[in-house]
Amino acid sequence: MAGHFKETIFITGITGFTGKHLEDYFVKQGFCVYGTTFSESYSKNHIVCDILEEKTLSGIISNIKPDFIIHLAAISFVAAADQKHIYNVNIFGTLNVLNAIERLEYKPKKILIASSAAVYGNIEGALSEDMCPKPVNHYGNSKLAMENMVRPYFNRLNIIIVRPFNYTGIGQENHFLIPKIISHYVKNKKEIELGNIDVYREFNNVKFVIKSYSELLFSSTKSEIFNVCTGHAINIKSIINSMDNLANYNIKVKINPKFVRENEIKILKGNPQKLFSCIGDFSTEISMEETLEEMYNNIS
């Protein structure tokens, strides 16, 4: 990767969970990293911008002239209340980014756009890219619509779309499942309310996702959609057991019917064959136990 030093990477949503990890990763690799943030900026390289404001966004990208672009900015919480805003940001915000790029006097080397495994909906088993997506919520629907709107740009720009499965790590907000569980142990809570814990899901480390994004960004592949997954699903009960051992006490799990999804499937994981054939398999570099310990020792 040494040949890429001093090149510029532009990340929309740079102050989000994934954006922070990406920025840290690429800065350590020697890149100049800029990005947009919706909230107040505390860094000269973070520019306050609503991606729905196409003219402002276009001016920012034109001034920075990035070599690579990673588009993360989105409404990413499935339970977000404002349904229209989910579609506006996730679809039209993405189109604003691509339209701004097309106004540049050059073509960036690669554009990576984050979709989501939520496009698959409640399909049982190991999900592969050749399956027909069947989203079951507004978030998944907005991401699938976004993908369909991006495809016409494949002929004009070097684009990769990624569908990450569940991932976690230091800095993820506590309304997500794994940070919620860990925060209860950090606070020495005796009880936790959860939904169905007898299901299997991927919970990959954000470091795996960051490395996957980086490898895809610098690969020669374009005009493709990739699952970003390991194919390793873990039972939520086993996460509780691991945390019991880590925190040296047993928490009581109370099943709250409000958190139990109707017709919830037993096993949901991705098929990583396409991803691994492109960038290799480094899925075993960090275990679930290591992830939990890292988060437990660093959660706020």
Rank of each mutant, 00 (worst) to 15 (best):
A2H: 09
A2N: 11
G3E: 12
G3I: 15
H4R: 13
F5W: 11
T12W: 09
I14N: 01
T18M: 10
G19T: 08
H21S: 06
T37D: 02
F38M: 03
E40P: 00
S43G: 04
S43Q: 10
H46P: 03
I47M: 01
I47K: 01
V48F: 05
E53N: 14
E53Y: 14
L57D: 01
S58I: 08
S62Q: 15
S62E: 15
N63K: 15
F68S: 02
F68H: 06
F68L: 06
I70R: 03
I70H: 06
H71C: 04
H71S: 05
L72E: 03
A74E: 08
A74Y: 11
A74P: 06
S76F: 14
F77S: 00
V78I: 14
A80T: 12
V89R: 03
G93Q: 05
V97Q: 01
E102I: 10
R103V: 10
R103D: 06
E105S: 13
K109Q: 07
K110D: 00
I111W: 04
L112W: 10
I113H: 03
I113E: 00
S115E: 02
A118R: 09
A118G: 06
Y120S: 03
Y120F: 15
G121Q: 11
N122E: 14
N122G: 03
G125H: 15
S128N: 14
S128H: 12
D130N: 12
D130S: 10
C132M: 13
H138I: 11
S142F: 14
K143A: 06
K143V: 14
V150M: 05
Y153S: 05
F154H: 06
L157Y: 06
L157I: 12
N158R: 12
I160W: 11
I161G: 00
I161D: 00
P164Y: 08
N166Q: 09
Y167D: 02
I170P: 00
Q172G: 01
E173L: 11
E173I: 13
N174R: 13
H175Y: 15
H175D: 08
H175N: 08
F176I: 07
L177N: 02
K180I: 06
I181F: 14
S183T: 00
H184S: 11
Y185T: 08
V186K: 09
K187R: 15
K187Y: 12
N188I: 07
K190Q: 13
I192Q: 04
I197Q: 02
I197P: 01
V199R: 02
Y200E: 04
F203E: 01
N205C: 09
F208V: 04
S219V: 06
T221C: 01
S223E: 12
I225N: 00
V228A: 02
C229P: 05
T230I: 12
T230P: 02
H232D: 09
A233W: 05
I236S: 00
S238F: 14
I239T: 07
I239S: 01
I240F: 10
S242P: 04
N245S: 13
L246Q: 02
L246A: 04
L246H: 05
A247E: 01
N248D: 08
K252L: 09
V253P: 01
V253L: 06
I255L: 04
K258H: 13
V260C: 09
E262F: 11
I265E: 03
K269H: 12
N271L: 07
P272H: 10
Q273D: 11
L275G: 02
C278F: 07
G280S: 05
T284S: 05
E285R: 12
M288Y: 14
E290L: 07
L292A: 04
E293F: 05
Y296R: 08
I299W: 04
S300N: 09
